[in-house]
Nucleic acid binder design. Structure first.
Lengths: 164, 164
DNA sequence: GGAATTACGTCAGCCTTGTTGACATTGTCG
DNA sequence: CGACAATGTCAACAAGGCTGACGTAATTCC
């Protein structure tokens, strides 16, 4: 009962209309995707940019500023503004690299981990609900299409478990 | 070789790790998704906000400002800044509503349609490539999960073909 | 017919988060 | 030692969100 997205086996029928629906699905879904963390962050002095930094520092503790810059794809000035507030508020700490002392290895503090958990709990809850509603095959397809939609460089970031 | 996202039939194994991957997939994929239009728009005086307005005016010619506000979820002040430039540049035109003269029915001009086509061609090309790479079943799953991830209100917007 | 409401526009000011450019510091490496 | 790399920082600017307040025209309600 999920075999007829395409006209015939293996041949997708990709009308502009089908593609437009896919485009709008991305647009509306991304809004839902960010809605819960946004709600948590509003009122605190933080925004989505802080969320992103916190997420990736949590994912890969000890990553360097350069690593994070590459992942986020913003300028260092922009990232620095965000990191500074996270340092000041004691959510993130930087440890000097032991082999290369120029590097600053980023870690979440306990306080930072607490916020990370609050944010990702909310986001995971929505993702889990969507997965459950859609079923296992849908989940596989979801991930496959998203992966194919990434820029190759980002796909590498995504696939590499060690974000370094 | 794509049947084992779930532990067993029908039961999703939703570890936090699996969910985290889904979250990051959304993040990286959305970047790819917007990259091509962004490239086209940079240099012109327009940005993503203009793209969104153009997209939905094209999808539903004759929609009112209120309709568009509801779809985009921004304030009228914010939308107006965007619409004004689109009027001034002759990409969008507003026709007074025939039943209710307070309404302004929005339409793309030929020039607006040309830009719309350039933008959506780029975005569709990526979407099509991703769909092809992933296959029909994946496409079905992709749409199903995205739909489940939307806020209910947005899902209504998404499903309603007439965006009015 | 007059009052309330609706659709829309606009002025003003603020915030976040992105940008560029220039420059300083400190550490690594050949 | 000198070039280069990793990082931070100051300054200025832009896009695109936001709130609040106000104005006008058209519709609707009593």
């Amino acid at each position: 009962m999920a075999e007829n997205t395409s006209g015939s086996e293996g041949l997708l029928f990709l009308t502009d209309e089908q593609l437009r629906k896919g485009i709008e699905a991305m647009f509306f879904a991304y809004r839902g995707f960010t809605a819960d963390p946004d709600r948590i962050l509003e009122g605190m002095d933080y925004g989505r940019a802080h969320h992103r930094a916190i997420h990736f520092i949590n994912r890969t503790p000890g990553l360097t500023v350069s690593n994070l810059l590459a992942i986020l794809g913003v300028t260092k000035q922009s990232l620095n503004r965000v990191l500074r507030t996270l340092f000041d508020d004691g959510l993130v700490e930087a440890r000097v690299g032991r082999t290369d002392k120029r590097e600053r290895r980023l870690h979440l503090t306990d306080k930072g981990q607490a916020l990370e958990r609050a944010l990702s709990d909310a986001q995971r809850a929505r993702m889990r609900a969507a997965y459950r509603a859609a079923g296992p095959q849908a989940v596989q397809g979801f991930r496959t299409v998203l992966e194919a939609m990434m820029d190759p460089e980002m796909r590498r970031q995504y696939l590499r478990e060690e974000g370094l």
